[in-house]
Amino acid sequence: AQTTLTISSWLPPSHIITKDMLMGWAKEVETATQGRVKFRLLPKAVASPPGTFDAVRDGLADVSISVHGYTPGRFPMTKMAEFPFIGDSSEAISVAYWRTYTKHMAKLDEHKGLVLLGLMTHGPGQIYMTKQKVASLADVANQKIRVGGGLVVDITKAMGAVPLLKPASETYEIMKSGIADGIFFPKDSVPAFKLVPLVNHMTVVPGGLYNVSFGLWMNEAKFKGLPKADQDAILKVSGEHYARMAGKVWDREDAAGLKAMEAEKIIIRTASPEFVAEIKSKTDPLEQAWYNEAKAKGIDGAAVMAEFRAEIKKLSGK
């Protein structure tokens, strides 16, 4: 029997998340199931980005990707992948994230009603400013920074900057007009959102200033309705396999993004150890707060983070 599953993406078909990650995964599933499971990308997303989780749980679409941080309060444990200084490679972070999260957090059932098929993070988030160079914490004080959702909001506030949560579609306008003084983004996204001409200063924070956790999930009833062989085939190309595949794509795009920026007049500097220490002193309390949050759920947050970081280190070393 053949099944066609619907895929919903809130990003355009040409975006790497849709084209390479969602549809790349779909292609692998089609091959692994020898064509018994096929996919149809819907022309339009069935829900807003924050509504994607509910849309897949309730069967509006069968498969989708979304950002955990878009629904604050719902996936508190996924913040583990969003802290500063966790790693320089999306592939290493994503694989380690999948391993650590499923090992320690699965029992909390944060993705209730869904089959969690994959986790990933984008490339390490960096600092981009229109005018102001950023070499110390004092430089970002009171600067207005456009950010997405999730832990980065708290990180921005902790650093003394002002987070601007404007819709992603307005990114270019608010940077160009000076409503925002800068943006925290992964390297691939600055060229992707056509921001290169607006950016004059970039500060690379070793290990990343922040990150964003993404989940790939499928409707539970649809998954359970598939024959066992097809379920197994899907799982085989999901999980760690998917984390590696998606992370590789992001690392590739990040490298291309950096190259595009190096070709322009952007002044690129690396955060000094002093600056990193400054940031750390401000964001450590956030990590501490998360340990407490985890503790309330019976998780030893500090141990999990240590394990997660060691895993990333091990994977990056290869």
Partner: peptide
């Protein structure tokens, strides 16, 4: 129904929580 789910899942706003 949605309100009930949001209560259970602990949904908050991003900045002011």
């Amino acid at each position: 129904v949605k309100a009930g789910q949001m209560f259970e899942q602990g949904d908050t706003t991003a900045v002011l929580q």
